[in-house]
Amino acid sequence: MTTTITLNGEPRTLPQNPLTLAELLLQLDATAPGYAVALNGKVVPRQHWEQQTVSGGDALLLIQPIAGG
């Protein structure tokens, strides 16, 4: 059963529902140190990624580190 979330302002279809945040980030290849995640406007600490579920209609903001100078 698929479901749709909003990821960084864009609709995205997920292959299963619910999905843990850790599972979703693994699918997105976004597990490196430095990533920050907000789910429905609230920052989710990394230690909660395994327990936090993502369901249809959720809005996810994924911020990735960028080197600069």
Rank of each mutant, 00 (worst) to 15 (best):
V37H: 06
T2R: 08
P11M: 05
L26R: 06
Q16G: 12
T31H: 00
R12K: 13
Q16A: 15
Q52M: 10
A38S: 04
P11E: 07
L60T: 03
T4N: 02
T6Q: 14
I66P: 10
L61Q: 07
D29R: 11
L39D: 07
G57K: 14
S55H: 06
R12C: 00
A22M: 10
L28K: 00
L7N: 01
P33K: 08
D29L: 08
L62G: 05
A32L: 09
G56F: 03
Q52H: 05
Q47K: 12
I66V: 15
L26H: 06
A36I: 11
R46F: 10
P15A: 15
P11H: 03
L19V: 05
L62S: 10
A59M: 06
G34N: 02
R46N: 08
L21G: 00
N40D: 15
R12V: 06
L61D: 09
Q27P: 04
A36W: 10
H48E: 14
T4Q: 09
T31I: 12
T20R: 13
N17L: 09
A59L: 03
T13L: 08
H48W: 00
A32T: 04
T31N: 05
E10R: 14
E10D: 13
G41N: 02
W49K: 05
T4G: 08
T3A: 02
V37G: 11
Q64S: 15
G68F: 11
Q51M: 11
R46G: 07
D29S: 15
G68P: 11
L62K: 00
P45Q: 10
K42Q: 11
L24N: 12
W49M: 07
N40L: 09
Q52A: 07
A30W: 11
E50D: 13
R46Q: 13
N8L: 14
N8C: 02
L19Q: 05
V43Y: 00
L62H: 02
